[in-house]
């Protein structure tokens, strides 16, 4: 019965509903943006939920450390709220994939990138490291193992670190989509499908802009979206107007229209990328309508990820003296 299905999440949703209040709202984000210096921005952060982290950080200027810590806090919370749920895993896979990428590249470039590892995934970063070093691959999830094998093969063939990213990205998408549909998380599956579509759209635009060839595009397109890769490939050869035309019957009509218009004007794809992210946020806001299911939890995590990304953009911008208007340009809409 569907009754027991969603009331499982009642406790978790209860906590999330309160935590949502602590997400930074528009005014706080605005003040953060308008801060005149990194110190002032840190002061603003100290009034928010981040106060603790800022106060305890060994180096408060190291915004990456602070935000990573926050993300970890969120995942720990999700683990606690959903101990037996594969749902929590869905969010963590990308950190394992990130670690795998880092380690593989370090391996091939003979450098130490350990400081880039993020210990937030399903498998502790140390384990992944030792497993890769000692070549005991079978002790990590099979998909990772296959992914690493494929990535190694691809690298040895092409000698380009980029292919490692591509192969592992595909592993990630396939894995997450598979788990989401197995877990019956319809909302999340839809979000993911849209995400894949938008990533593909961005790849298409980028490859087209740089003119890197159809084969390159074929390599970077991800499966699993609502639009098949075969939808994107023919568009490589067509002009931008035709591209807009092709998307006019998809939900991404507005994103493509405005994004392409901005590109034709400025030669930059930033607007398109931003619109794509905002599109996802709009989808995410649907979760506010769900009273009891897993949706609010999923939305909270993604909202938090988005918030952290925005804070990073602002703080790094402040550090490097980027103008406020320019920072604002790069920010994504927030959930609240």
């Amino acid at each position: 019965m569907s009754i027991s299905q969603d009331s499982r999440y009642a406790y978790a949703v209860g906590r999330i509903r309160v935590l949502e209040n602590k997400l930074l709202d528009k005014t706080k984000m605005q003040r953060l943006q308008n801060a005149k210096s990194v110190d002032e921005a840190l002061l603003v952060l100290s009034e928010t939920d981040y106060a603790d982290l800022v106060a305890k950080a060994p180096n408060p200027y190291d915004i990456d450390a602070i935000t990573t810590e926050e993300i970890k806090r969120v995942y720990l919370l999700i683990r606690e709220l959903l101990p037996k749920e594969a749902l929590a895993d869905l969010f963590l896979i990308k950190y394992d994939i990130h670690n795998l990428k880092v380690l593989l590249k370090a391996h091939y470039q003979k450098k130490d990138f350990d400081y880039l590892l993020v210990d937030a995934g399903l498998v502790p970063a140390e384990t992944i490291k030792s497993v890769l070093k000692n070549d005991q691959l079978p002790s990590i999830p099979k998909e990772y193992y296959e992914g690493v094998k494929a990535a190694k093969a691809a690298y040895e063939e092409r000698q380009d670190p980029k292919v490692i990213d591509e192969v592992l990205d595909r592993t990630q998408t396939a894995m997450v989509a598979d788990m989401a549909s197995k877990g019956g998380h319809e909302f999340y599956r839809r979000l993911l499908a849209a995400q894949v579509d938008l990533v593909n759209l961005k790849s298409l635009a980028r490859v087209k802009r740089l003119g890197r060839g159809r084969a390159f595009l074929d390599d970077s397109l991800l499966p699993g979206g609502t639009l098949a890769p075969s939808f994107f490939t023919p568009l490589y050869g067509s002009d931008w107007a035709q591209l807009v035309q092709a998307f006019s019957l998809t939900p991404y009509k507005a994103v493509v229209e405005q994004g392409v218009a901005a590109y034709l004007e400025s030669g930059q794809l930033t607007t398109l990328e931003k619109l794509a992210d905002n599109f996802q946020m709009t989808m995410l806001r649907e979760a506010k309508m769900f009273a009891l299911g897993p949706e609010p939890i999923i939305a909270y995590v993604m909202a938090k990820e988005n918030e952290v990304r925005n804070i990073r953009i602002i703080m790094i911008g402040k550090k490097n003296g980027v103008a406020t208007a320019e920072i604002a340009e790069r920010l994504r809409e927030s959930y609240v």
Partner: peptide, 18 residues
């Protein structure tokens, strides 16, 4: 019991934070 149970779970979630 089921009703109060569901409501109670949600309530404990909210109270944990607030």
């Amino acid at each position: 019991s089921i009703g109060v149970g569901i409501a109670g779970q949600m309530a404990s979630g909210v109270v944990t934070e607030d």
